[in-house]
Amino acid sequence: MGVSNNVTSVLNFIAFLCSVPIIAAGIWLASKADNECTHYFRWPVVILGTLVLLVSLAGFVGAYWNKQGLLAFYLFCMAMLIGLLLIVLVFAYVVTREDGGYSVPGRDYREYSLGGYSAWLRDHVTDPENWVKIRACLAESDVCTRLAQNYVIPDQYFAARISPLQSGCCKPPTVCGYTYANPTLWLNPTNPTADPDCYLWSNDQAQLCYNCNSCKAGLLGNLRHEWRKANVILIVALVILIWVYLIACSAFRNAQIGDHK
């Protein structure tokens, strides 16, 4: 096996290692209630990471056993996957760039408004047909029941850093003036006309604020928060993959020149 093929084998092993955090980031995203309920966003990163893994293995085999056709196939496919990963990153950045969260006096958690998010993401989530499915999925999850297990007294709850999804779906908007009984039980609003969501709130544990605009905005807030975290891992992996790919192209070209001498 020539020097160029040795280099390409090592580079493909590095690319293989890069696929692991991509897959891990995808699995982490898929495990979250908001991504689980919005199937559109659930598996793309896992699928992309798996393809990088398989293509890297093909490149390693091609380099180790000097299969030039397999190496050429690897270079073509890896270029496509790098392009797809770049598209996913740009798309995720654009649709999660804006933040609909705002601070509320006397609360450490934030509340969320639909107007603060990109039109594409907002329209997809708030589409009535989509929201019926998302709402049913959220109601079956433990997003809100976990709050009752973790917080008891009001001061403890008001000082909590609950997730955007929990803030939007598990309680009424603060402006409504409801009195805290427990994290998912609120009574006697003093300002019930302040927001349309005030009328939509229900102490029925299967209803809560799942019909509220604040719940839809909270879902978008969760998606934004989680995808921006995952993007850090994906950006690092993309930079390494591009570096590996460029060196692999040079090594492949040198091997081709060497074979013709």
Rank of each mutant, 00 (worst) to 15 (best):
S103C: 01
P128N: 14
N66G: 06
L57P: 05
Y93P: 03
D108V: 09
S113W: 01
T126H: 07
L114C: 04
E129H: 09
L85C: 04
G106Q: 10
Y102A: 02
R97D: 15
V94H: 06
L54G: 07
L70H: 04
I82F: 10
G100Y: 01
V104R: 02
N130F: 02
V55Y: 05
L86C: 13
L84R: 04
L89W: 02
L84N: 08
E98G: 08
D127S: 12
R42E: 15
D99C: 02
G115F: 00
L54W: 06
L48A: 12
S103K: 04
W120N: 07
L86F: 14
A119F: 09
P44G: 07
V104E: 11
F91E: 03
W120E: 10
G59H: 09
E98Q: 14
A72P: 03
S113P: 00
G100T: 00
N66R: 15
V46F: 06
L84M: 15
V90K: 12
V61D: 03
F60L: 11
Y64E: 12
V95K: 00
R110A: 12
D123L: 09
A58G: 13
Y109A: 11
R110K: 14
I47T: 10
L51E: 11
G83C: 12
V95D: 05
Y112G: 01
C77W: 14
D108Q: 15
V55E: 10
T96M: 10
R97L: 14
V46T: 07
G115E: 00
C77L: 15
Y117H: 01
Q68N: 08
Y102Q: 01
G59I: 08
G100L: 01
V46S: 05
A72M: 13
L48W: 02
V55N: 12
Y102T: 01
L75R: 05
D123A: 07
F60K: 01
E98M: 14
E129L: 15
V45F: 01
F73H: 05
T50Y: 06
S56E: 09
P44H: 07
V90D: 02
S103R: 11
G83Q: 09
G116P: 00
F41Q: 10
G49C: 13
W131C: 10
A58E: 13
L86T: 15
R97M: 13
R107P: 03
L71D: 09
S103A: 14
T126W: 04
F60V: 02
G116T: 00
A92C: 11
L89N: 11
W131D: 12
L86I: 13
V90H: 05
V95Q: 07
W43G: 04
G59E: 08
W43F: 13
N130A: 07
F60W: 04
F76Y: 05
H124M: 13
R42Y: 05
L48S: 02
S113D: 11
L57G: 11
F73R: 07
S113H: 08
Y64A: 14
L57T: 06
G100N: 00
E111H: 00
I87C: 09
V125F: 01
A119N: 10
Y112T: 03
D99K: 01
L84P: 00
I82Q: 10
P44Q: 10
F73W: 07
M80L: 15
G100V: 00
G49Q: 07
C77Y: 13
W120T: 03
S56W: 06
M78W: 03
P44F: 08
G83I: 13
R122G: 00
V90C: 10
T96N: 15
V55L: 08
H124R: 12
A72S: 10
T50K: 09
V52R: 06
